[in-house]
Write a protein that binds this DNA or RNA. Structure first.
Length: 490
RNA sequence: GCCCCCGUAGCUCAGUUGGUUAGAGCGGCGGCCUUUUAAGCCGCGCGGCGCGGGUUCGAAUCCCGCCGGGGGUACCA
């Protein structure tokens, strides 16, 4: 034992049982248990078996013992595998005295393989296996979390997710639903001819979003690398290269605070479609989200607290100017300088905050929490969007939208800026923001501008926050509920 | 980063005007019982009260510091 010099009684008991098992010549950690059935298949095979009926249909299953109810020369055990749970009926007359005694003295949490015939109990009619053979497959040396109350301590649930999964059905459900969501998102894109790619996580220069990066160091090259904050710039270089429909689904990293909607590493989908604009991407996003919900949940209606949210398209569309005027009572078009806007908001302008930052603040504080039903907010100030193309008719704005559901941003999109000279000027504006003290401004990326000089078709791009989508589909209030191992202090 | 709340048994929790060896249910251990089942029946606490100081005759309880978590806030997706 390295972790504790003195073992608690609970742990010592299990160690002693392990020793006794070994002394009896039994391998407590054998190598396999072949030709087992999944429990869910056994259940399906005996659907509707009448109470009291004993069949001669034999099954071989394996899993963790999650409960035991002793009964003298008989006992009931609940066995669970990845597919489900089934009751085992252990009887001394079927097993023989020695095998029965060893079985009854197993600990909750031990993993066993068993064989026996299916029956439905007389009283409850519960499907059970009357086992006549069994084998220990792995000894559990630590007690399982409580099965009655489950494991509720959130810290333990996040730090030791394996215990959470053992104890809590809802956690297992969220994990499965997340996996299916990601699968359906991929399928939706694949079916439409999008090509999945992988671009660098370690980048010499970060970009594609307004955020602070993590920095790491490459020893052999003796250079610092940034963990990507977005995949945007590399993906657009692929569009230049002729990949007309491209996507990447993977992790981004942003060096920001953690909250119920922010984990420092999070899963982002970005897709780019050549010859499309931000109107097309909006129609695609609402379609994608609705179809994924339909396939994963069987409905496009989700519940968020007391409110039912309908994800079926079309979603509401409103301009950012309208949204802020409606919710905050300020017309940003009439307050075109940071001093004027700050005055209208009744605040002192922070020296590090430009006009765009103030608008962003109004959006996230006054507008975002109110957007519960799916809504596209359209047409952002150019200051906030260094990679979006100028609006075709509105001066000072770009063709960009953000999608909000349940009071949270889930996606962001624009008609991509493909004029290299305009892109250069945007980088120069960002440099000014950096100089002013905005640590989230963009560093200049010459390789990206040169790629645009090669010629990029008009393109629509989207970023969809997968964690937040899963939060919506599962009803989770915290991103930590949908991320298996959320960032914690250590 | 700041503010508020929380940290008692393997699990879920009682216990604060400071007062005898710190409690319950589940789990565990022992016994009984061949169809129980959100925990069959009977019996037995198995504990450095997050860590370190301090006040006091006496601290789980009061004070200070630290660690960890939750909620809010700032920043952001």
């Amino acid at each position: 034992m390295t972790e504790q010099p003195e073992l608690s009684d609970v742990l010592r008991d299990r160690r002693e049982k392990l020793d006794r098992i070994r002394e009896a010549g039994i391998d407590p950690f054998p190598h396999e248990f072949a030709e087992r059935e999944e429990i869910v298949a056994v259940r399906a095979a005996h659907e509707g078996l009448a109470p009291g009926v004993e069949t001669d249909s034999r099954h071989r299953v394996a899993g963790r013992i999650v409960a035991r109810r002793g009964h003298g020369k008989a006992a009931f055990l609940d066995l669970r595998d990845g597919s489900g749970q089934i009751q085992l009926h252990a009887r001394e007359d079927l097993l023989g005295e020695e095998a029965f005694e060893r079985l009854v003295h197993l600990d909750l949490g031990d993993i066993v393989g068993v064989e026996g015939a299916a029956l439905a109990t007389r009283r409850g009619g519960e499907l059970s296996l009357a086992i006549d053979r069994w084998r220990l497959l792995a000894k559990s040396l630590r007690p399982p979390p409580g099965k009655f109350h489950g494991l509720e301590d959130v810290e333990t649930r996040y730090r030791r997710r394996e215990l959470d999964l053992i104890a809590n059905e809802t956690s297992r459900r969220v994990l499965a639903l997340r996996a299916r969501t990601i699968g359906e998102v991929r399928r939706w894109l694949d079916e439409r001819g999008f090509v999945e790619v992988e671009t660098p996580v370690l980048q010499p220069l970060y970009g594609g979003a307004l955020a602070r990066p993590f920095v790491t160091h490459h020893n052999a090259l003796d250079r610092d690398f940034y963990l990507r904050i977005a995949t945007e710039l590399y993906l657009k270089r692929l569009v230049v290269g002729g990949i007309d429909r491209v996507y990447e689904l993977g992790k981004d990293f942003r060096n920001e605070g953690v909250s119920h909607k922010h984990n420092p590493e999070f899963t982002m989908l970005e897709w780019y479609e050549a010859y499309a604009d931000y109107g097309k991407t909006a129609r695609d996003l609402e379609l994608l989200v609705a179809e994924v919900a339909e396939r994963v949940l069987g409905t496009t209606t989700i519940q968020r607290g007391e409110t039912a949210i309908d994800l079926a398209p079309p979603w509401r569309r409103m301009t950012l100017r309208e949204a802020i005027r409606e919710r905050a009572g300020v017309d940003i078009a009439e307050r075109p300088t940071r001093e004027a806007l700050a005055a209208a908001m009744g605040t002192e302008p922070d020296p590090a905050e430009g006009w765009g930052k103030l608008v962003d603040g109004l959006l996230s504080k006054s507008v975002e929490p109110e957007l519960v039903q799916p809504t596209f907010v359209l047409d952002y100030p150019v200051e906030l969007s260094p990679f979006a193309k100028a609006h075709r008719s509105e001066e000072g704005l770009v063709e960009r939208w953000e999608a909000f559901v349940g009071g949270m941003e889930i996606a962001n999109s624009f008609s991509e800026l493909n004029d290299p000279d305009a892109q250069r000027r945007r980088f120069e504006q960002q440099a000014a923001e950096l100089a002013r003290g905005d640590e989230e401004a963009q560093p200049y990326d010459e390789a990206f501008v040169e790629a645009l000089e090669q010629g990029m078709p008009p393109t629509g791009g989207v970023g969809l926050g997968i964690d937040r989508l899963v939060m919506m589909l599962t009803g989770a209030q915290s991103v930590r509920e949908v991320v298996l191992f959320p960032a914690m202090r250590f």
